[in-house]
Amino acid sequence: MYKVDVFVVLKPGVLDPKGEAVKKSLNVMGYEGVNEVRIGKFIEVWLDAESREDALRQAEKMSKELLANPVIEDYRVKIVEGE
């Protein structure tokens, strides 16, 4: 079994109202040097795969199909555990 970490982030230029609200809050708290905050998703997936490459291929495919929406989001996958 492999464990894959999937990071989903909004594409550059896509408005992130949640990130904007958090940024403003940080500024109000005194973190005046915070210029931008973008909020994405971190998804952990445990899966069966024949090999590391297979696990990566599966994770890429599921990211493209469901975990991220390619219209607004970019993703990257990383195998973190497995034989």
Binding site: P17, K18, V71
Partner: peptide, 17 residues
């Protein structure tokens, strides 16, 4: 329909949150 690709584009959170 957007997620299914039957129409182009995507939805984001409302600007006002």
């Amino acid at each position: 329909l957007l997620e299914a690709g039957l129409l182009p584009g995507a939805m984001l959170r409302n600007k006002s949150l």
